[in-house]
Amino acid sequence: MSVEEYGPAWRRGPFERGTDGPHVILAGVDDTASSARAGAYAAGLARRQGSRLVMVYVRAPSAWTGMTPTLLAGAQEETYQDVVEELRGRVAGLAKEANINVTLEVRRGDAYAELKRAAIDRKADLVVVGASESAGRRLVGSVAQRLVRAALWPVTVVP
């Protein structure tokens, strides 16, 4: 797992009755269009609420990698590195543009399990994810659906 900070330092503001919103917003990000929209939505919400934004990218290994590790592992690792580099650029730009603190976490494993673990570890008040663009979600359920069913925090699913 790697953790990187971008933008100004974040501090919890003073409590105001009726106006305190989420203090920590966690957004699940990857290289899809719905994820980019979810990240932008979470950044805007974090800016307006004075919240800390934690963006989490989960590197989920393919089932095929275990079958032919020498052929696919190198290519998959290179793809992951490309996605992480792209995310670093987008996150740094977002932090600068919105003048907010953004933490980028890169984790490895199952997307649902790692997002849930990150939200618990960071004591997230809200989880924001993009709607699934995968046809396979009908068989096992999307990450967003599973997060909603976990019922641990409010979950916003951005189309």
Rank of each mutant, 00 (worst) to 15 (best):
K96R: 11
L115T: 04
Y112E: 02
R138W: 15
R108A: 13
R149M: 09
L71P: 03
P154L: 05
G44K: 09
G66W: 13
V158C: 06
E85D: 00
K96I: 05
E78T: 12
Y80I: 02
V3R: 13
T68D: 00
V84D: 00
S35Q: 01
V24E: 02
A9W: 11
G141H: 11
R12C: 04
K116N: 08
R122C: 00
G18D: 13
G89M: 12
V3I: 00
I100G: 05
G130N: 07
S2C: 07
A73L: 10
R52L: 12
Q81R: 15
R12Q: 13
L147W: 05
K123C: 07
A38V: 02
D82V: 09
T156E: 10
R90L: 12
A46M: 13
A135W: 15
A92L: 07
E77A: 06
V157W: 09
A150K: 05
E77V: 05
A63N: 11
A150G: 08
R137L: 00
G93L: 04
A75L: 11
V143I: 06
E16W: 09
V155R: 03
R146F: 06
S51R: 06
T156Q: 08
V140K: 01
Y41G: 01
D20V: 07
E4G: 03
E85C: 09
T156R: 08
L139F: 12
R90C: 10
E5D: 12
P69L: 14
A131P: 13
M55I: 09
R108V: 14
R59C: 01
V3C: 08
A43V: 10
R117F: 14
D20Y: 04
R47W: 11
V158F: 15
A60R: 08
M1P: 14
Q49S: 03
V143R: 05
D110P: 11
M1K: 11
D125N: 02
R108H: 13
A95K: 03
V102P: 14
I100E: 02
E85N: 10
V24L: 05
G50A: 05
V129F: 04
Q145F: 08
A63I: 15
W10I: 10
V140S: 03
V148N: 02
S51Y: 12
A36T: 14
